[in-house]
């Protein structure tokens, strides 16, 4: 593990709750570490597990998935589907040797700016403790290091 390791986290947010919670945290000037970068989706149900894989493959050390509290989904029940996918994904990731703590699911309503900020801060510390992921972004499927050029040509990560 490197000294002063600063993790990078990709956060997926729901347009109706957690993205608005993030907006609320901003409006209320609640502070949290700058390690997280948020992507807005319409619903946590939109989260294709491939997005998480992609983020990790691109060098993210952790992925935060956020959605409306169970029972409060703007689209009635799609966050339950997100939950199901998350549980499956976590098993898949565990099979690939990725610590379960790197991908986290948090429910945050539009009113929970402070809560979301706290969850982000906690997660940054947890990932910091886990250390960098260094997922084989630079390696082929059999572990060989690849040049950026060939990687860019579409060799599967």
């Amino acid at each position: 593990m490197t000294e002063n390791f600063e993790p990078t986290i990709i956060g997926f947010t729901c347009n109706w709750c957690s993205y608005r919670a993030a907006d609320l945290a901003g409006t209320a000037r609640v502070k949290y570490p700058p390690n997280v970068r948020l992507i807005r989706l319409m619903c946590s149900g939109r989260l294709d597990p491939a997005f998480v894989m992609k983020a990790l493959a691109e060098g993210a050390d952790g992925v935060l998935i956020t959605g409306c509290h169970p029972g409060e989904c703007h689209y009635l029940e799609q966050n339950y589907k997100a939950l199901r996918r998350f549980l499956l994904l976590r098993r898949t990731l565990a099979g690939m040797g990725i610590e379960p703590g790197r991908v986290k699911l948090v429910w945050a309503s539009a009113a929970e700016g402070v809560r979301l900020a706290n969850e982000i801060a906690t997660m940054v510390e947890e990932i910091r403790a886990l250390g960098p992921l260094r997922w084989p972004r630079w390696h082929t499927w059999n572990g060989l290091f690849i040049e950026e050029k060939s990687r860019a040509e579409g060799v599967p990560a």
């Binding site: 490197t2 600063e6 990078t8 390690n35 989706l41 992609k54 983020a55 691109e58 060098g59 050390d61």
Partner: peptide, 18 residues
């Protein structure tokens, strides 16, 4: 979304040089 992830990860000043 894939493109946005790539874009967000382009700037990575926290970790060691790639």
């Amino acid at each position: 979304i894939f493109a946005q992830i790539e874009g967000l990860m382009r700037v990575n000043f926290f970790t060691e040089p790639q």
